[in-house]
């Protein structure tokens, strides 16, 4: 387990790059903490809003002495926001609020060996899927897929099919190297 609180002082000081390094290790854990809400809230929207709130309130966060305090705090923010969303949009009960504490132990920094394998697999992609993958990654969520497709001169469904194919080919290539993507 990595203690991502090593980035806390810089985050509190307003260093957005440090917050990026913290997110690189924490995003997956926070997303996994929202799995039980996936059918009733848009997890991506809730996650992005939660991470933004973590950045905003980090200067007032107080450590309790345990590692990954900011990550635990982020999970609480995300799950509270998800519960609020369920209450706002639906009448059915929200999923249980108890959290698997072992999730926090899954905090990891990026793996350089995995990166090398994925880069090799990406270089083997056919041109159109590669183009769709690269364009969406470079855009980083700034525009919707209709805009991205238009910029590449593709129809929206063609763009999405190419992206799906790129993702599946990458997963197949990695699987051949003994790496499961999940």
């Amino acid at each position: 387990m990595t203690d991502l609180d090593v980035h806390l002082a810089a985050i509190v000081a307003g260093d957005a790059d440090a917050f990026g390094r913290w997110m690189a290790g924490s995003e997956r854990v926070v997303r996994e903490s929202l799995r039980s809400f996936a059918a009733v809230v848009d997890v991506e929207a809730v996650l992005q809003e939660s991470l933004l709130r973590v950045w905003q309130v980090a200067p007032r966060f107080e450590r309790d002495g345990r590692p990954n305090g900011l990550l635990r705090f982020a999970i609480r923010i995300a799950r509270n926001l998800a519960v609020s969303e369920v209450r706002r949009t639906r009448s059915e009960p929200a999923p249980p609020e108890d959290l698997d504490e072992t999730l926090v132990e899954h905090a990891r920094e990026p793996d350089p060996l995995l990166r090398a394998a994925i880069l090799e697999c990406r270089d083997k992609l056919p041109p159109k899927p590669r183009q769709a993958l690269d364009h969406r990654l470079a855009d980083a969520g700034a525009h919707d897929d209709a805009d991205l497709a238009e910029a590449l001169g593709m129809r929206l469904n063609t763009f999405l099919q190419n992206f799906t194919r790129a993702r599946q080919l990458l997963a197949d290539c990695l699987k051949k190297r003994g790496i499961e993507v999940s």
Binding site: A16, F19, G20, R21, M23, A24, E27, R28, R31, E32, E44, L47, Q48, L51, L52, W55, E109, P110, D111, L114, R115, I118, L119, R122, R136, L137, D139, A140, G141, A142, R167, L170, A171, V181, S182
Partner: peptide
């Protein structure tokens, strides 16, 4: 979930498109 792991591994700073969007 699976896509963000791939994206982060492809990014020079280990950031997914979600993290980039938040930044």
């Amino acid at each position: 979930l699976a896509s963000r792991s791939l994206e982060a591994a492809l990014d020079t700073e280990g950031l997914s498109t979600t993290a980039r969007a938040v930044l």
